[in-house]
């Protein structure tokens, strides 16, 4: 058999594998669609964001919301001593007001 024929067979095998992956992706997405409603309802009920992939530390479990009693998480550059902390960025609350601007604004009537 000529080498080019062997290469053609290898390429056909690779194409079949790519096709197989495509079918697998499609199947997984179909299964996911079925469970989508369950997750939507669950999220509506609980309303807490963040995936529970990192539960090592409290500030990593809900890193997009600060929680009580975690000392350094409000400091944007803080890196704590948990192993997973190197891989999580601090929350991006870029539109947060600082103390200077909020104190210069008068309280509206609604709050009184």
């Amino acid at each position: 058999m000529r080498y080019s024929t062997v290469l053609t067979l290898i390429l056909i095998a690779l194409t079949c594998m790519i096709f197989g992956v495509g079918v697998d992706v499609n199947n997984r997405i179909k299964i996911d669609r079925k469970s989508h409603d369950i997750r939507i309802r669950f999220n509506e009920i609980v309303g807490l964001p963040n995936l529970s992939i990192t539960t090592a530390a409290r500030y990593l479990r809900h890193y997009s919301l600060s929680d009580l009693s975690t000392p350094f998480q409000d400091y944007p550059c803080s890196q704590e001593h948990f192993p997973a902390s190197f891989a999580f960025a601090p929350p991006d609350f870029k539109d947060m007001p600082d103390r200077l601007t909020t104190h210069t604004i008068n309280r509206p009537v609604a709050s009184q």
Partner: peptide
């Protein structure tokens, strides 16, 4: 790298 050292973590069944 993603789950840290915790004892509670999901099975990581992800959707492609």
């Amino acid at each position: 790298v993603f789950i840290g050292w915790s004892t509670i973590y999901p099975s990581f069944k992800l959707v492609p």
